[in-house]
Write a protein that binds this DNA or RNA. Structure first.
Length: 571
RNA sequence: CGGGGUGUAGCGCAGCCUGGUAGCGCAUCGGCUUUGGGAGCCGAGUGUCGGAGGUUCAAAUCCUCUCACCCCGACCA
C-alpha cells in the first residue's frame, strides 16, 4: 500500500479527550476517528488490524468445528419477550420501532436469534452437537462509554453458541472453546489470563473470562501466587479465617460517638482496629431496602450482593431515601433492633464483641454479640477480597490483584434459553429433549485496543507481528531522487510478490516526519531506502522493537528481510 | 442517574470576568531556501464563536433554555 494514496491521518499532538494509551495512539496513528460518544469509524490502517484479529478468530473457530453464520443486527422485540429479557435487560438495550410501530432492538447479543434458528432447523439428536458463530457489530448503550474502542457502544464481537444433548456434551463443547480461546489470544501475541467469572446479564451456570493484563484494565482480577486459582473480583473468594478461640462476651455498652461517621473515624475515636467494627450498608433492591453488613476494613461488592440476594440489582439509595428508611443517618446505622432485613458477610459469623451503629444519632454499640444482642442473620458472600489474603483453593498461596481488560468470555448457559424458547430435538428413543447451550464471546475490536495497551512505547505502537497492519514499512527517504525512487519501487514490488505486507512511505516529506510516523504506526520492520547509505549501495533494516538495526547491500535486502517477516510470530 | 467541566478555523487553544473590527500555534494552499528524527522565511485561504431565545444602540462575551462531548461518583453519596 502506498502511503500517499492512503488515508493515514496521523496527529502530532495528543488528542485532549483520550485518557488511555490505546485511545490516544489509535487516534494519533490514524486508525480510527470518533463519530459520536462510543462510536468510531475504522480508517484503512485500523481496519487492517481489525481484519487480522478477525482472521485469527475465524480460523480457530473453524478449526474447533464451529460453523460461521451471520445473524441480523436488528431483532424483533417478540424474541426478547419470549426469553424474558425484554424487561430484564436495562437501558443498555437500544430499542426502537419500525415504520409499523413494531418494537425492535439493535442486538447486543444473539442468544434469542440463534435459539430461534436452531429450534426451527435442528430436529434430531443426530444434528448435535452443533456450534454456530458470527463476527458481527453489536450495540450496547453503555452508561458511560470511555477509553475509545475499549468500551465503545458499538463494537465488533465474535459470538458463538453451542448446542448439546446433555451436560457432558456441553462440557466437551465448553472445553473445546476454552482451548480455542487460548490459541486465539496466544496467536494475537497477548499476555492474558483465564479467570472464573460472574455470569452477568447473559445468565447461566459457570463461566470464565479471558483478561489481557494491563494497568488500564477496568476489571480487577484476583489470582493465587501458588496454585492456578484466578477469578474476577466479582467472584473471587478467600479462605475463611479459622474461628478464633472465643473471647468471652463482654457486657453490651452504648457509647456516644458525636460527629464520628466513617468507620475510620469511629475506630480511631474508640481506639479499636477497623476489623472490630461492623460496617452497615443500606441498599435499595427491587424487594425493598436491605441492610448489608461487612467487616469494617472490608468493602462491599454489589454484584456479589445481588447474586447472594438473588435479585437482579442492588443499588445505593440517595442519602434522603436512605435516612428515611433507616430512621437515622448512615453514620449511626446498625443491625441491632433494626426494622430492615439483615444479611451479613460470612466473615462476620465468628466475630465477637464488635462495634456497630446504635440506630441512634451519634451513638454506637460496643461488645455486640450475635444471638445475645441481635438475631443471627443470614450470611452470604458480600465482600471484596483483598490482596494478601490466603487462597481458598490451595490454602498455602496468597491472593494477588491485577487489572485486566476482558477480551473473551465463555459461559455454560445450560437450558436457560433453550427452555424458555423451546429448543428441543428428538433423542434416539424418540423422546423430546431440551438442548443445553453454551455461549462464547470475544471482543474483536477490543482486542485491537488491548494489544496496544500491552505493546507500545513513548514513540507509538509496537504491533505484535500477527496483528500489525503491515509487516514492513518501506521508507523512501527522498522520493524525488529518481535512483532512490526506482530502487524503492523495485523492492516494494518484490516484497509484495513475496507475499509480504508492505507500506511504502513515498510521501514527499522530510525524513524526520516519516521516521516519527513510522514509530507511531508501529510496523515491526522498517526498511530505509535512500540518503547516506544508498550512496554506498546499502539499505537499512530496523526493527520497531529496537533490537535490530543494520545496513545491508541493496541486492541482499529481500533475502535478509524475508525470513524475519514470514510466518506468524509475536515479534 | 447525580455532580463537575468544556464547546471559538481541520487539530490544540487564547479572547468572556469588565459587551464595541474574532485571534495565536500547528495543519492546509502557493513561492523560495532546506532535506537522516515532526524545517525556515514570505504570502494566502479558512469561522453560522455548539444551537435557540432574551437583554442591549451593539453579544463569542451578560441572562434563560437546549444539545453535544469529556471527567468524577455506588462503604457517609
Amino acid at each position: 500500500m502506498r502511503f500517499h494514496k492512503t488515508l493515514i491521518p496521523t496527529l502530532k499532538e495528543d488528542p485532549v479527550d483520550a485518557q488511555v494509551v490505546s485511545h490516544r495512539l489509535m487516534l494519533r496513528a490514524g486508525l480510527i476517528r470518533p463519530l459520536g460518544s462510543g462510536i468510531y469509524t475504522w480508517l484503512p490502517l485500523g481496519l487492517r488490524v481489525l481484519r487480522k484479529v478477525e482472521a485469527i478468530v475465524r480460523q480457530e473457530m473453524d478449526n474447533a468445528g464451529a460453523q460461521e453464520v451471520l445473524m441480523p443486527a436488528v431483532q424483533p422485540a417478540e424474541l426478547w419477550q419470549e426469553s424474558g429479557r425484554w424487561d430484564f435487560y436495562g437501558k443498555e438495550l437500544l430499542r426502537f420501532t419500525d415504520r409499523h410501530d413494531r418494537p425492535c432492538c439493535f442486538g447486543p447479543t444473539h442468544e434469542e436469534v440463534i435459539s430461534d434458528l436452531v429450534r426451527r432447523e435442528i430436529r434430531s439428536y443426530r444434528q448435535v452437537p452443533a456450534n454456530f458463530y458470527q463476527i458481527q457489530t453489536k450495540f450496547r448503550d453503555e452508561i458511560r462509554p470511555r477509553f475509545g474502542i475499549m468500551r465503545g457502544r458499538e463494537f465488533l464481537m465474535k459470538d458463538a453458541y453451542s448446542f448439546d444433548l446433555d451436560a457432558e456434551g456441553l462440557d466437551a463443547s465448553y472445553q473445546s472453546m476454552f482451548a480455542a480461546y487460548q490459541r486465539i489470544f496466544q496467536r494475537c501475541g497477548l499476555a492474558f489470563r483465564a479467570v472464573e467469572a460472574d455470569t452477568g446479564s447473559i445468565g447461566g451456570a459457570s463461566s470464565h473470562e479471558f483478561h489481557v493484563l494491563a494497568e488500564s484494565g477496568e476489571d480487577v482480577i484476583i489470582s493465587c501466587d501458588q496454585c492456578d486459582y484466578a477469578a474476577n473480583l466479582e467472584k473471587a473468594i478467600a479462605a475463611e479465617a479459622d474461628a478464633e478461640a472465643g473471647e468471652a462476651a463482654a457486657p453490651l455498652e452504648k457509647v456516644a460517638t458525636p460527629g464520628q461517621k466513617s468507620i475510620e473515624e469511629v475506630a480511631r475515636f474508640l481506639q479499636l482496629p477497623m476489623d472490630r467494627l461492623i460496617k452497615s450498608l443500606l441498599v435499595e433492591t427491587p424487594a425493598g431496602p436491605i441492610l448489608l453488613l461487612v467487616r469494617g476494613d472490608r468493602s462491599l461488592n454489589m454484584i456479589k450482593a445481588a447474586n447472594a440476594l438473588k435479585l437482579p440489582q442492588v443499588t445505593i439509595p440517595d442519602a434522603d431515601r436512605a435516612a428515611y428508611w433507616a430512621g437515622v443517618s448512615m453514620g449511626s446505622l446498625g443491625p441491632v433492633e433494626s426494622r430492615l432485613p439483615v444479611v451479613a458477610d460470612h466473615e462476620l459469623r465468628n466475630l465477637r464483641n464488635f462495634v456497630c451503629g446504635a440506630n441512634e444519632e451519634g451513638c454506637h454499640l460496643r461488645n455486640v454479640n450475635w444471638q445475645r444482642d441481635l438475631p443471627v442473620p443470614q450470611f452470604a458472600d458480600l465482600r471484596n477480597v483483598t490482596a494478601g489474603e490466603p487462597c481458598a483453593r490451595c490454602h498455602s498461596g496468597r491472593l494477588q490483584r491485577h487489572q485486566g481488560i476482558e477480551v473473551g468470555h465463555v459461559f455454560k448457559l445450560g437450558d436457560k434459553y433453550s427452555k424458555a424458547m423451546n429448543v428441543k430435538v428428538l433423542d434416539s428413543q424418540g423422546n423430546e429433549q431440551i438442548l443445553v447451550m453454551g455461549c462464547y464471546g470475544i471482543g474483536v475490536s477490543r482486542i485491537v485496543a488491548a494489544a496496544i495497551e500491552q505493546n507500545h512505547d513513548a514513540n507509538g505502537i509496537r504491533w505484535p507481528r500477527s496483528l500489525a497492519p503491515f509487516q514492513v514499512e518501506l521508507i523512501l527517504m527522498n522520493p524525488r531522487d529518481s535512483n532512490e525512487a526506482a530502487t524503492g519501487e523495485q523492492l516494494y514490488q518484490a516484497l509484495q510478490q513475496a507475499g509480504v505486507e508492505v507500506l511504502l512511505d513515498d510521501r514527499d516529506e522530510r525524513a524526520g516526519v516519516k521516521f516519527k510516523d513510522a514509530d507511531l504506526l508501529g510496523c515491526p520492520m522498517r526498511l530505509l531506502v535512500g540518503g547516506r547509505s544508498f550512496k554506498e549501495g546499502m539499505v537499512e533494516l530496523q526493527s520497531r522493537a529496537g533490537d535490530l538495526s543494520q545496513r545491508i547491500p541493496i541486492q541482499d535486502a529481500l533475502a535478509t528481510l524475508l525470513p524475519l517477516v514470514k510466518g506468524e510470530g509475536h515479534g
